[in-house]
Simulated assay, not measured.
Amino acid sequence: MKSKKIALALVGMCAAFTLAACSGGKELVTMKGDKITLEEFFDEIKTDQQVQGKLQNAIVFKLAENAYGDKVNKKEVQDMFNEQKENLGDTFLQQLQASGFTEATYKEAIAQNLAFKKMQEAHVKLTDKDLKETWKTFHPEVEVQLFGTSDEEKAKEALKDIKGGKDFGKLAREKSEDISSKDKGVVKFDSSSMAVPNEIKEDIYKLKNGEISEVLTAQQMGQQGPVTTYYVVKMVKNKDKGNDMKPFEKELKQIATDAKLADATFVQKVIGEEMKKANVKMKDKSLDGIIASFITEPEKPAKTDKKADDKKSDKKDDKKSDKKDEKKDDKK
Results as ranks from 00 to 15, higher is better:
A259G: 15
L171K: 06
P197L: 00
V187L: 03
W135S: 01
A172F: 07
Y230K: 05
Q120W: 10
M221T: 09
S150I: 12
G165P: 04
Q224N: 13
D258G: 12
F138T: 02
G169P: 09
T137R: 11
G242C: 01
S181W: 02
T134Y: 01
L216F: 02
L131V: 06
A172T: 02
A155E: 04
M221I: 10
F248I: 06
V232K: 00
K136I: 12
I255F: 10
A122H: 13
V227L: 14
F189L: 05
T228E: 03
G164L: 08
H139V: 07
I204L: 04
T127I: 11
V233I: 06
E202G: 09
A122W: 04
V187R: 00
V124S: 02
K136H: 02
L131Y: 11
E251I: 10
D130F: 05
F189E: 04
Y230W: 10
I162G: 07
K163H: 04
A218E: 02
G225P: 04
E157A: 15
L207H: 05
E214I: 03
W135Q: 02
N238S: 14
V186G: 08
M245I: 08
K188H: 15
N209W: 08
K166N: 06
V236I: 15
E202A: 14
E249H: 10
T257M: 09
L126K: 01
M194I: 12
E202V: 08
A158N: 01
K250L: 12
K129H: 11
F147N: 06
E152H: 11
V142L: 07
L171P: 02
D190H: 10
G225Y: 00
